[in-house]
Each structure stands twice: as structure tokens, then as C-alpha cells.
């Protein structure tokens, strides 16, 4: 089974978020970058487990510039077989999806995985767009996946609960918590990753459907108002009469 896992490079979860150039660019100064956790912990690791159980091949795909290569090598260190980087700065989800679906159609994959969203743009867009562009079924927010031959049984999050669905490959899935447990690359994996193929392909022509005009930070909080623990009940009076929230 050929599995394509789409990964994104995002700031570490502890990164301080700031902007430069008149609030139009993310300030990368001092920021550590990681593989988007949903792409790594859930999509990639589950893909590797399927490969280990049934054989096959796991390809990493990233849309980005050369500075993403160390992040892609980390995904190879965790255990993916090879990687592709589409050489484009991904600023628009639809344009990014167009690159991915074009590559995936040309190269024929049985399964295409993404994380449920990235922790930087929080778009939750790519999986559905790729599925639509490839005319494939889309299973969003999958928290469990079992393959039996060509047929997948998937548990997905829906409004108010979960649902079990069945679908035959090929399909596109976005991975949520529960799919797999995070793996830490070992030294052998890190060494092997250095020589695994990382192919760079040029993007197809495509216009951006959206653009970020500016960023802003939330308004700073005022001081915390303390309530004495002995008279904790006063809190509820404040929430009702002052904050007018209950």
C-alpha cells in the first residue's frame, strides 16, 4: 500500500508569537520549528504502523522552501521511506492543496493523510480540498483507523460524538488524537534519514485564493482580581454583578 503523509512545518507549541514588518509577517526570530503535531503524532505514526503490519511505502510530502528540509528529515528519521518537497511558500490553502493533489494524482497513492489542522494557521482545510480535487472520499477528524485488505474501518469525530465508517481505498483522511502514539526517532533512524531520498519538485502554476493582510495579538488582560479562599462564594457574586456573566 502506498501512503502519502502531508506534513507542515510549524512553530514549537511553546513559541512566543510576535509579528514584524508592520504586523504582516510572523517573527521567526528565536523560534524553534517542529512537524505539525497532528501530522506527526497521528497521521505519520499510523501510516508507519500500517506499513509495518501490511508492507508498503510511506512518502512524506511538504509544500515549502529549502529551509523546511531539516523538518522533513525528522519525519524520515521517524521511519518514512522517502520524501517530496514541492518548492513553494505555502500561503494559501487552496493553492497548497492544488500542488499536493496534482502530485498525488500523478504518482498514485492508496491513502493520503493529513493532520486535522495545523497549530499555526488552524485552517482545517487541506484534507477536504485534496479529497475534492482528487474526487476521493474524505474522512475528517479520524481518531481510529484499521485496514482489512483494501477496506478501512475508521472512527471519526462528528458533532456530539463519534461515528464508525467504512470506505475502500483510495481515500483522504485527516488525523486527530487517538490514531496513534507519538514516536521518538532513534539514532538508527536519524542516521538512515540522512541518505533517504528527498526529492524537490517545482510547483504547478496556481493563483492564491486568499491572502493574509495583517496579524494582530489579542488585547492584553487587565490585572487579576483576587477573591479570598475563605469567602470563595463572593466569586459568584462578582461573576453575576460585576462581570455579568452568570
Amino acid at each position: 500500500m502506498k501512503i502519502l503523509v502531508c506534513i507542515s512545518k510549524v512553530p514549537d507549541t511553546t513559541a512566543k508569537i510576535a509579528f514584524t514588518d508592520n504586523q504582516t509577517k510572523f517573527d521567526t526570530n528565536g523560534v524553534q520549528f517542529i512537524i505539525n503535531p497532528y501530522d506527526e503524532w497521528y497521521a505519520l505514526v499510523r501510516a508507519l504502523e500500517l506499513k509495518e503490519a501490511n508492507g508498503g511505502n510511506v512518502t512524506i510530502l511538504n509544500v515549502g522552501t529549502a529551509e523546511n528540509d531539516p523538518t522533513i528529515r525528522k519525519a524520515l528519521a521517524i521511519g518514512a521511506d522517502d520524501a517530496v518537497r514541492i518548492n513553494m511558500d505555502p500561503t494559501d490553502a487552496l493553492a497548497t492543496a492544488t500542488q499536493i493533489s496534482t502530485y498525488a494524482k500523478e504518482n498514485g497513492f492508496d491513502l493520503v493523510f493529513t493532520g486535522k489542522e495545523t497549530i499555526d494557521y488552524n485552517g482545517s482545510q487541506l484534507g477536504g480540498m485534496i479529497a475534492a480535487q482528487m474526487d476521493l472520499p474524505y474522512v475528517s477528524y479520524a481518531s481510529k483507523l484499521d485496514m482489512n485488505g483494501n477496506t478501512a474501518t475508521i472512527e471519526r469525530d462528528i458533532q456530539g460524538g463519534k461515528e464508525i465508517v467504512e470506505v475502500d481505498a483510495p481515500f483522504v483522511l485527516s488525523a486527530a488524537k487517538g490514531m496513534a502514539e507519538a514516536r521518538i526517532p532513534n539514532m538508527r533512524g536519524i542516521m538512515a534519514a540522512r541518505t533517504k531520498p528527498l526529492n524537490v519538485v517545482e510547483p504547478v502554476a496556481c493563483e492564491n485564493s486568499t491572502e493574509v493582510v495583517s496579524y494582530e495579538l489579542p488585547a492584553a488582560k487587565g490585572d487579576c482580581k483576587y477573591v479570598d479562599a475563605e469567602n470563595a462564594g463572593v466569586l459568584l457574586d462578582l461573576l453575576r454583578n460585576e462581570a455579568k456573566i452568570i
Binding site: P11, F19, Y121, V212, S214, P218
Partner: peptide
């Protein structure tokens, strides 16, 4: 964006 740490005007 950034998981609630900021906003983008798109």
C-alpha cells in the same frame, strides 16, 4: 491563528 495566540486578517 497560532491556536488562539493571535489573529490574522484575511
Amino acid at each position: 491563528v497560532f491556536s488562539g495566540k493571535a489573529y490574522a486578517n484575511v
